[in-house]
Nucleic acid binder design. Structure first.
Length: 277
DNA sequence: CCGCGGGCCTGCGCGC
DNA sequence: TGCGCGCAGGCCCGCG
């Protein structure tokens, strides 16, 4: 599931347990993730301190002491489990990389479908690594604005929904939050990018920020209850207004319409045909 | 440059 | 209960 809010929630959950600690040992059980795990990952990071944990779009960056940064992507089914080290630890199916941290805690990268990745970057990599370099602005940051969005979206001839999934346009949205943001903004997913108006760009930026912000808050509250027993970070209950609600009533008062599902560029899109134009 | 379709994997839920 | 199918929240590549 992980889109920007889930990844941010994972980051916030990891910080108190990992930042400032030493990576004592790394065990790799599968190297064949979507991007191969560097064969010498353990020797390159063992014994080094995790100085900062950052996020860029849906990527997590562990800045470790020395010249390299660990770059983690959760793909579609990736998780990071935190094991506090109190009980007896058993490796689960699909646990691919285990970081043993000073103080007895473990951070476990688990990914059923192996669309995720655990990789290394030269530190200061945003300028050098193509994966990060090609990303558009952070939606919650100052570089993202109605003017920036409008300029980029108006160059698109295709429908706005698949365009918003393009990480070069704005970084961190996935299939769920794009549907949710378009609903909040009252913009049809089928509208052509070139036909988006100034006013719609204003509404879209507001909608993107509010839907992501609320989801990050919901993730934050899930962290406050985090006991460390199951150790699963970043997955939390969240109510969606259209996503996966095909056939259910539109949640706008007085609308009376129903949520529709269509497929665009091979992905499901959910929307209300009455409220979104 | 843009838009789309396919592929990468495994697991789950559905209809039969 | 078992089987086959479609589907899944990401991303990259190649084609037109």
């Amino acid at each position: 599931m992980p889109e920007l809010p889930e990844v941010e929630t994972v980051r916030r959950g990891l910080i108190p347990k990992l930042e400032g600690r030493i990576i004592q040992k790394v065990e790799v059980y599968r190297y064949d993730l979507r991007v191969p795990v560097p064969a010498d990952l353990p020797s390159r990071v063992e014994g080094r301190r995790i100085e900062r944990i950052l996020r860029r779009a849906k990527y997590l960056l562990f800045e470790v002491e020395g010249p390299e940064t660990i770059l983690i992507h959760l793909g579609m089914s990736g998780h990071i489990f935190l094991d506090t080290g109190s009980g007896d630890f058993r490796r689960q199916k699909h646990d691919h990389v285990i970081f043993h941290i000073s103080g007895g805690c473990r951070a476990v990268f688990n990914d059923v479908r192996r669309f995720g990745s655990v990789d290394l970057l030269p530190r200061g990599a945003p300028e050098t690594d193509e994966r990060l370099r090609s990303l558009g602005p952070e939606p919650m940051g100052n570089a993202f604005s109605p003017a920036v969005l409008l300029e980029a979206i108006n160059r698109r001839s295709g429908p706005v929904k698949p365009a918003l999934l393009d990480q070069r346009l704005v970084a961190g949205l996935g299939n769920i939050y794009v549907s949710e943001a378009l609903f909040r903004a009252g913009v049809s997913p089928r509208r052509k990018g070139r036909n988006i108006s100034q006013r719609q760009a204003d509404r879209l930026v507001d909608a993107i920020r509010s839907v992501l912000g609320e989801a990050i808050e919901a993730g934050g509250s899930s962290l406050r209850d985090f006991t460390g027993t199951d150790g699963e970070l970043g997955y939390f209950q969240h109510r969606f207004q259209v996503y996966d609600r095909e056939g259910l009533a539109c949640s706008n008062k007085n609308c009376g319409g129903r949520v529709k599902r269509i497929v665009q560029a091979g992905r499901s899109t959910y929307f209300c045909g009455r409220c979104q134009n």
